[in-house]
Structures are given as structure tokens and as C-alpha cells.
Design a protein around this nucleic acid. Structure first.
Length: 212
DNA sequence: CGGCTGATGGACT
DNA sequence: GTCCATCAGCCGA
């Protein structure tokens, strides 16, 4: 039987939390309907230490939730139309978080298909951060939601030992393009994690330089 | 399958 | 103004 993690689970380093969120379940209750997704891909962000984080340049109205207590959702709006969800990690005052990038629908398939009509195959229903958020029926109104509250309309559950039950040998990691390493040599941090060979993991695409 | 591009709006310089 | 922690649709192979 899965458990709802305590505060200590989220208060750790975001990279550790990211690992343990692989295989965990996210459940949303929207309009009386429950939807559960098994997390298959995540990305760790390290706040003000991380040039790739929204919180890198300090606290703003938008990033305020990330500077708050762990175990809350940071949901942001991007590209004029998409919502993506993060779980806030680390101690209060630090701004680390884990972005949920992809997952497999475990239950509530009917509702998810209604929300994701463009998805041809079931593996595409939550394959990508904005798709996953849409699949759960969430948007900016979930920003700041406290996952630790038993009454919360979004819950995350994992195995009793505090893991998502994915063996380390089944976890792959990769770097994030566009984020330089400490030496400025172009190395990237391996802070993208996914379940090896899982078909619902999003295809990694380096950010392309776009011009008009 | 892979590559390319428009959509669309808020945050930040 | 410019930059996005993106996605869907279209095109060619």
C-alpha cells in the first residue's frame, strides 16, 4: 500500500527527491473525478544555484512558491498556453524543485482522453510536462497547493520505504542543454532522470535557436 | 520516423 | 523588445 510522504521527504535535496519521485503516483481530483499518473520522467532544479532555474535570479512574484516550504506545487505558465508542474523541495528559503516531465496514466483514462483529445496513443497522454499537467486537469489554480494536506486535491504517493519502487539500475540520467557546468566548459548536470526504456518518457530535444 | 514552425501571453531586461 | 523548463500539425523520406 502506498503512503503519502511526510515533510522530510520533500525537504531533502531536489536530486534525491527527483529519484524517489520516479515510479511514484500523482493523483488529482478535479470535478469529482480522480486521475492517477505514474511518474516516469523528472528534472531537478536547484534554485539560486542553478542557471536553468526560474529562481536563479532571486525571488519574484512568480517564483515565490519555490522559496516557500517544501511539499507544495509550483505551477507555471509558459509559451503563452501551457502549464507545467513542479514539486518544491529543500528547506524553506531555498528554491529547489522537481519538474514532473512525463508519466503513464494508471487510472482515470476516460477523463484524461477527454482532456488530451489530440493524443493519438495512450503513451502520449502525459508524455511531456505540459501534457502531464493537462492530463491531470490542472492549471495555475493549483500553484501553491500543499501536497502534505490530507484534503489537498492533488496527492503524491510512494512506497512505504519512501521510494517510488524504481531500482537504481533502471534509472537513466542526462544533462540539460543550455546549462553550463561549474567550469563553464559546456558540461551539463545530469539532472534529468527517467525510467530506462519506458515508452512514456518524452523524447529529449535540445532547445533550438529560433528566429523570425 | 525526424525536422520545422506557428500559436500565444506573461515575465523579465 | 526578447525569451521562453512546449505542443500540435504538417511535410518529406
Amino acid at each position: 500500500m502506498r503512503i503519502r510522504p511526510e515533510l522530510e521527504f520533500y525537504a531533502r535535496d531536489s536530486l534525491k527527491v527527483a529519484r524517489d519521485l520516479l515510479g511514484a503516483h500523482v493523483t488529482s481530483r478535479v470535478a469529482g473525478t480522480d486521475t492517477t499518473i505514474r511518474i516516469t520522467e523528472v528534472e531537478a532544479y536547484r534554485g539560486q544555484e542553478d542557471p536553468g532555474s526560474h529562481a536563479y535570479r532571486g525571488e519574484t512574484k512568480r517564483t515565490a512558491v519555490m522559496f516557500g516550504p517544501p511539499g507544495h506545487l509550483y505551477v507555471y505558465f509558459t509559451y503563452g498556453m501551457h502549464w507545467c508542474m513542479n514539486v518544491v523541495c529543500g528547506a524553506t528559503g531555498t528554491a529547489s524543485a522537481v519538474l514532473l516531465r512525463a508519466g503513464e496514466v494508471v487510472s482515470g483514462l476516460e477523463a484524461v482522453r477527454e482532456r488530451r483529445v489530440s493524443a493519438r496513443r495512450d503513451i502520449d497522454l502525459a508524455r511531456g510536462p505540459a501534457r502531464l499537467t493537462t492530463a491531470l486537469g490542472l492549471d495555475g489554480s493549483a500553484n501553491g497547493l500543499n501536497l502534505l494536506s490530507p484534503q489537498a486535491t492533488v496527492q503524491i504517493t510512494c512506497e512505504p520505504d519512501g521510494s517510488g519502487a524504481v531500482r537504481a539500475s533502471q534509472i537513466s540520467t542526462g544533462g540539460r542543454v543550455g546549462v553550463s557546468g561549474p567550469g563553464g566548459d559546456g558540461d551539463t548536470y545530469p539532472w534529468r532522470l527517467w525510467i530506462t526504456s519506458d515508452p512514456t518518457v518524452s523524447q529529449y530535444r535540445p532547445g533550438k535557436v529560433r528566429r523570425r
